[in-house]
Each structure stands twice: as C-alpha cells, then as structure tokens.
Amino acid sequence: MPNIKVSSPALEISGLTKRFGEKLAVNSVDLVVPSGSFFGLVGPNGAGKTTTLSMATGLLRPDAGTVSVHGLDVWTNLVESKRHIGVLSDGVRLFDRLTGLQLVTYAGLLSGMERSVVAERAADLLDLFDLEAASGTLVVDYSAGMTKKIALACALIHAPQVLVLDEPFESVDPVSGANIRNILHGFVESGGTVIVSSHAMDLVQRMCDHVAVIADGRVLASGTTDDVRGDSSLEDRFVELVGGRRHGKGPEWLRIS
C-alpha cells in the first residue's frame, strides 16, 4: 500500500485540464498547496474552481494532467488517496432522510473504519459542532448552518490530512461561520491542510495564509495571501486580475433624486 509523504506539498496539481464539449473548463492548471497551510481558491462564477477541486479529490476524472496528495498520485491510487482527503462539495445532496448521527456514522463506515471507532468519533464530532441535541433529527430538517456542520463532520470522521471545502460558508449564519472557522484553524494548527473555495474575499483574506486566483480555467496568481494582494485588498487585487468592474451609477430612472 502506498504511503504518503508528509513533508511533500499537501496538494500538487500539474497540467490539469478538463473539457465539457466545446468548453475548456480547466486549462492546464498548475497549483501547489503547501502542507499545513490554510489555502483559499477564489474566482468568479464559472471560473473552474469546482471542476478543479472535483478532479483534485478524485470525484471527476481529468482529461489531462496529474494530481498528488502528499506525494501520492490521486488517479493512480484513487482509493488510497481518498483516505487522506476530506471533502465538502458545494451543492452535493446529503442522505438527508438520515438523522445527523446516522449520517456521520454512515460516512465513517463507508471509510472502512471499525464500528466502535466510528461511534466514538461521531460522538466527538457532534459535540464539537454543537449538534448533540440534533443528533436524532433528520438532516432534511436542519438549518443551512447545521447542514454545513454535519457535512463537515462527515468529511472529518476518517481523520484526513487534507480538507477540501467548496463554499463552506455559503448560507451560514455568522455564529455557525465563526464556529466552523475556529474548528478549521484548529485543524491547521494540528498539522492538517485546509483548501477553501469561496467568493467572500474579505473572509479569505482574514482566514487564509495562501491564496490562488482562478478565472477562465487558468490560475492568474498564486502564493501567500500577502504576496498576491500586494498593497491593496484581496478584493481589489482580484478585480484587477479578473477584470469586469463597472463604474457607472446605473440608468437615470434608478436615481431617487
């Protein structure tokens, strides 16, 4: 069984490419995510973020290119590499007719863990995410914030080295968002790596120590957050790289006076 190299980059992408018909969704992307980093992947809608992360985590086969997690080639060692990755995908439906406890337990059992270990870890995670009182409630009846937290618990139960989270804070209230950020920072401080895709530039600037800007399926800038944003805010640097800002005040009929 292949072993991961903890000293190597948490995620290394080279020449990653994906087409959907005539559309080139991901255009020969190269990206290195340092081990132990809190990495933000930002870009406009349709930039290729979700497609890139889906290929990087073994959910979507690339047309070309390679992906490795701590030196382990994802698409050559698909099952083994997935043991080291926790994934929260944006928009993917959960088995929401299960209770919270059942869903986390199911995720653990799917990972091949012993039932006794799953039971212990599920209890720990429900306590960590303040979901103990809702453990017997069907996930379909959870709020948006609770749903994000139970999905994150499912991504964590097999103790991955790398967490890949696609829009983890979308539709999440400020309290739940703050709690999730605290948990993610604790994960990074313990040696894990978090990769977050988000539209919230201010949040990424405050939360992430590394960032990559992607648009039209290409990486426009990558490095430490401070290096990428330079002397401006990350949002201003993002708009400068991506383009498209409009400075007009709108039509006359929209003005009150």
Score class of each variant (00 low, 15 high):
Phe129Val: 05
Asp236Thr: 05
Pro251Ser: 02
Ser171Glu: 10
Leu31Ala: 01
Met55Ala: 04
Thr50Gln: 09
Phe187Asp: 01
Asp124His: 13
Gly136Lys: 15
Ser176Cys: 07
Thr224Met: 05
Val162Gly: 05
Thr76Ala: 11
Asp127Ser: 14
Arg255Met: 14
Asn77Ala: 13
Arg229Pro: 05
Lys149Leu: 07
His70Arg: 02
Val33Ser: 11
Leu41His: 03
Ser222Cys: 12
Met146Ser: 07
Phe169Glu: 08
Asn27Asp: 14
Val104Ser: 09
Thr57Ser: 11
Gly243Cys: 07
Arg181Val: 00
Gly43Trp: 07
Val29Tyr: 10
Asp227Trp: 00
Ser190Glu: 12
Asp96Leu: 03
Ser89Val: 13
Leu125Glu: 13
Lys249Asn: 11
Ser257Trp: 07
Ser89Tyr: 04
Glu235Phe: 12
Glu120Ser: 14
Val140Trp: 10
Gly71Asp: 01
Thr50His: 09
Lys49Glu: 03
His199Leu: 03
Thr225Pro: 08
Asn27His: 13
Arg115Phe: 06
Gly43Asn: 04
Pro44Cys: 04
Asp216His: 15
Asn27Tyr: 07
Met113Gly: 05
Arg121Ala: 04
Asp63Gln: 10
Asp90Gly: 15
Pro2Leu: 08
Thr137Arg: 15
Asp130Gly: 11
Ser14Val: 07
Ile157Lys: 09
Leu103Val: 08
Gln205Val: 01
Asn182Thr: 05
Leu234Val: 08
Arg19Tyr: 14
Asp90Val: 09
Ile157Ser: 12
Ser89Cys: 04
Ser35Ala: 15
Ser7Asn: 13
Val118Ser: 12
Ser7Tyr: 02
Ser197Tyr: 04
Gly21His: 11
Glu170Met: 06
Lys23Pro: 00
Val239Gly: 07
Leu165Lys: 08
Val32Arg: 15
Ala47Arg: 10
Gly15Ala: 06
Thr17Leu: 12
Ile4Thr: 12
Cys208His: 02
Val194Asp: 12
Asp96Val: 00
Leu98His: 08
Gly217Tyr: 05
Arg61Ile: 03
Leu53Thr: 14
Gly136Tyr: 13
Ser176Val: 02
Gly43Lys: 05
Gly46Lys: 10
Val164Met: 01
Leu16His: 00
His158Ala: 06
Val175Leu: 13
Val69Thr: 10
Val140Phe: 11
Asp141Arg: 14
Val92Met: 09
Val239Thr: 07
Asp130Thr: 11
Pro251Ile: 01
Leu125Arg: 14
Ser171Thr: 09
Pro168Trp: 09
Glu170Asp: 06
Asp130Arg: 13
Asp127Arg: 15
Arg19Asp: 03
Ala119Arg: 14
Val33Thr: 06
Ser89Phe: 11
Ser81Asn: 02
His247Gln: 07
Asp96Gly: 11
Arg237Trp: 02
Ala215His: 11
Thr76Trp: 01
Leu254Tyr: 07
Gly244Asn: 06
Ala133Phe: 07
